[in-house]
Design a protein around this nucleic acid. Structure first.
Lengths: 341, 341
DNA sequence: TTCTCTACTGTGAACGCTCACAGATGCAGC
DNA sequence: GCTGCATCTGTGAGCGTTCACAGTAGAGAA
């Protein structure tokens, strides 16, 4: 396994220019859009590039342009949670591919420890990436704030809390998704509809609960605080929440659960309590994660458009990098009907 | 959300030199190891760096050194499979963090389409990364071969097939893991031990089967071809394999399954056939994936040291980048006892 | 013809760094 | 004193680009 071969010195723009019989300037112009260059010259340059196998040296380019033509994908804080979330994978993959289409590499940055946080902040503010795709936790995020203050282009996934209103983000329409699900449950004839909320210090948690309330109010079903319990998106918290719910409102005939993982816990608790799903209690989840299909019965749930979210994040970030003003983007969700409701 | 602030021009090595009252050369020396520089000068430079908030411009450095001080994490071919595998996440995270400790960013590269493959190959061979961490599929991989031919430092995760022997890799000891598991099943008094293999065109599949055979031979248990069925690591294939196995060898009293996902399928098939686990049939998995804990009963399985694998991959790659000859690294596995065996 | 305008091309200079080299200083040995 | 050596420092060149600018050629208008 010796490091055989070594790497030969790659051809430079000089070599291409000589080969094509033109000047560096002309080659550079062909490389960057090809304006103000004659068809003959362009053809000669392209042929020379093909022949020599020339690839632009991005370092030299970056040195003078000040751009790095790369962006960071920054995950702050509780990495476990995100890394275990299959949606995170879809997001990461989607962003990587969307960027690849623009020939922009993605740098993965994980800010776990304070040391990593410092290093990453320095790296980014030093201009080593042109912008940052941010997957942040719910709590106020010092890294993100620092980046924002430094004027680094930044797009968050999901509405960030505590970052002021100045940061662009892309998110699924949590509230509308919740509305769809609760409407669906109403459509099944259920009236004692409980809810297991997510953490209420996150926008998602708040919005999903708000959607639930709105639809019940619209339908003239009076709200009952006993039907509202909260969890933290984990399976265990869903199980505990369902037990509380059954204790406080035994006549519950449907539950809207703010995450599929929690819904798994809810199913377990209902089964233990001898309630049949969906006959006695209909259950609706949120996320359309693999957990939704793995559950038995399979979960009726709300799908978030993760592929579109990643594509939009990249689009918005690139727009921001090229100096445009960008706004938040909210994308529609979709109800996925399975057995549990 | 306007792109307010803009980015100020960062300080250069010139600024630091002026601030510290020394020359560029001295600052550069301090930055790169600090040899041949007086303590007084070093102190002055460090103070100036702190005061100015200087961060080295990596592009300028790379332009002259020829190194990029970044490495690629390359995933070729069936992305779905890897992206759904939680171990992949652990691997990716581990590599990112191990590299971060060396201040080396990781570029995520996904070679799905032919177009992406071409682009990535060009990007890498052009020297835009110093080396590549490779997660490849089992089949011969044209990208990897091209990289190897170009002399790009390369470390694969798992033994690559069809890449010649010239590529370094880091892998878990599949054979020894299989041996441990089969020994464990023997220790439980089982003698009619079946095996559900992985795909036999992968090193992992081959090795795990070989381990099974070795232990049975050692123990003097005669081999029975009816006890050997194969799958493709998927849950469904495990279920089908178990049905075949039960048909061919109804007296089976234990099954070593080459992946946890398949083992889930095996459990389902056994339950449907009315066999109790582990009383009638003991089941051993492989991987220690979340599926192992989620299964009921929870799977006894073989844990692969993914955290150590990622750390070793980075170590070996960096060694290779700095010109050392590197060999393959095989890491030990660990038997995790749970309810299924 | 001459002038102007457009389309195109070549040429230095610069980006911020490292590297090789030359020079300076101090100290030991003759 | 001089020489040699080790330690330290500054300087110029150059990495491979892009960019601003100057310059050329040709077409059309006056």
């Amino acid at each position: 396994m010796s490091n055989t071969g070594g790497r030969r010195k790659p051809p430079t723009i000089h070599d291409v220019a000589r080969e094509a019989g033109v000047s560096r300037g002309t080659v550079s112009r062909v490389l960057n859009g090809g304006h103000y260059v004659s068809p003959a010259a362009a053809e000669a340059v392209n042929a020379a590039i093909r022949r020599t196998g020339y690839v632009v040296n991005r370092h030299a380019r970056s040195l003078i342009t000040g751009r790095s033509d790369s962006v960071g994908f920054l995950l702050t804080e509780p990495q476990e949670r995100f890394f275990e979330d299959p949606n995170f994978n879809v997001l990461l993959r989607g962003c990587t591919q969307a960027l690849a289409a623009h020939d922009i590499p993605l740098l993965l940055m994980l800010a776990g420890t304070d040391d990593e946080r410092r290093r990453i902040t320095r790296y980014i503010t030093a201009g080593h990436v042109d912008g940052v795709l941010l997957v942040s936790s719910h709590s106020g995020d010092p890294v993100a704030e620092e980046l924002r203050a430094a004027g680094v282009p930044l797009v968050a996934c999901g509405k960030p809390i505590g970052l002021g209103s100045k940061v662009s983000y892309v998110a699924a329409d949590d509230r509308d998704g919740a509305r769809d699900m609760v409407r669906h449950l109403l459509g099944l004839g259920r009236r004692r509809i409980g809810v297991v909320t997510g953490p209420l210090d996150t926008p998602g948690g708040v919005e999903r609960l708000a959607g639930y309330r709105e639809v019940l109010a619209e339908a003239g079903v009076e709200e009952d605080e006993r039907l509202i319990v909260s969890g933290d998106y984990s399976r265990a918290s869903g199980e505990a929440a369902a037990e509380r719910l059954l204790g406080r409102a035994p006549d519950v005939d449907a539950v809207f659960v703010a995450s599929d993982l929690m819904a798994q816990g809810v199913l377990a608790a209902l089964q233990r309590a001898g309630r049949r799903v969906p006959e006695d209690v209909a259950v609706g989840g949120f996320d359309d994660s693999p957990a939704a299909v793995a559950a038995s019965p399979a979960l009726t749930t709300i799908r978030q458009p993760w592929d579109r979210i990643s594509a939009e994040m990249v689009r918005v970030l690139l727009a921001q990098i090229s100096g445009e003003d960008t706004a938040a983007v909210i994308l529609p969700t979709e109800l996925v009907r399975r057995a549990s409701a």
